[in-house]
Simulated scan of single mutants.
Amino acid sequence: MDRKSLLMAASLLVVTSLYSCQPGDDTVKLAVIDKLNNSPGITAQVKDGVVDLNGEVPNDSAKVAAEDAVKKINGVKAVNNNIMVEPVIPPPPPMPEDTGGQQ
């Protein structure tokens, strides 16, 4: 075997080994669920290493924190953050004081 063929075979072996070391979607999903354990209202789906986050959180920082946490998981290739932030509902205006019919 010449040097070029040997180098090509070794390169193919390295690439194949690195690819096969990536965790499967089920393993990634378990890690995502574990990482989001303290984030009620968020669900996740994983397909080909791409994580889709869905649900509703109270503020933007919770949305960003969930995405940042998931991005760090081994095997995650991309994150689609579809999490919605709950709208802020302003309090009702104060009721006019009752004057008891007198002016």
Score class of each variant (00 low, 15 high):
2 D>G: 15
3 R>A: 09
3 R>N: 08
3 R>T: 09
5 S>T: 14
9 A>S: 03
9 A>E: 00
10 A>E: 04
12 L>G: 15
12 L>H: 13
14 V>T: 10
15 V>R: 09
15 V>F: 13
17 S>P: 01
17 S>C: 07
18 L>P: 01
20 S>I: 07
20 S>L: 09
21 C>I: 08
21 C>P: 04
22 Q>N: 09
23 P>R: 02
25 D>G: 08
25 D>A: 08
26 D>M: 12
26 D>N: 11
26 D>P: 06
29 K>E: 05
30 L>K: 14
30 L>A: 12
31 A>Y: 01
32 V>Q: 09
32 V>T: 12
33 I>W: 13
34 D>W: 00
34 D>H: 04
34 D>K: 04
35 K>F: 12
36 L>P: 10
37 N>E: 05
37 N>F: 08
38 N>R: 15
39 S>R: 06
40 P>S: 14
40 P>Q: 12
41 G>T: 02
41 G>W: 00
41 G>M: 01
41 G>D: 07
43 T>I: 10
43 T>W: 09
45 Q>V: 12
45 Q>L: 12
46 V>N: 04
46 V>F: 02
47 K>A: 06
48 D>V: 11
50 V>P: 00
51 V>P: 11
51 V>D: 09
53 L>R: 06
54 N>S: 03
54 N>V: 02
55 G>R: 10
56 E>I: 10
57 V>Q: 09
57 V>Y: 08
57 V>C: 09
59 N>S: 06
60 D>K: 00
62 A>G: 03
62 A>N: 03
64 V>I: 10
66 A>I: 08
70 V>H: 04
72 K>I: 11
72 K>C: 09
75 G>A: 13
76 V>F: 07
76 V>K: 01
78 A>T: 00
79 V>D: 07
80 N>W: 03
81 N>L: 01
83 I>R: 03
83 I>W: 05
83 I>Q: 06
84 M>A: 15
85 V>K: 00
85 V>M: 02
86 E>V: 06
87 P>F: 02
88 V>M: 10
88 V>W: 11
88 V>K: 10
88 V>C: 11
88 V>A: 12
89 I>P: 10
90 P>I: 07
91 P>E: 02
94 P>F: 10
94 P>N: 11
96 P>L: 06
97 E>C: 12
97 E>I: 14
98 D>E: 05
98 D>P: 08
99 T>D: 14
100 G>H: 06
100 G>V: 10
100 G>S: 08
101 G>R: 12
103 Q>R: 03
103 Q>E: 01
103 Q>H: 04
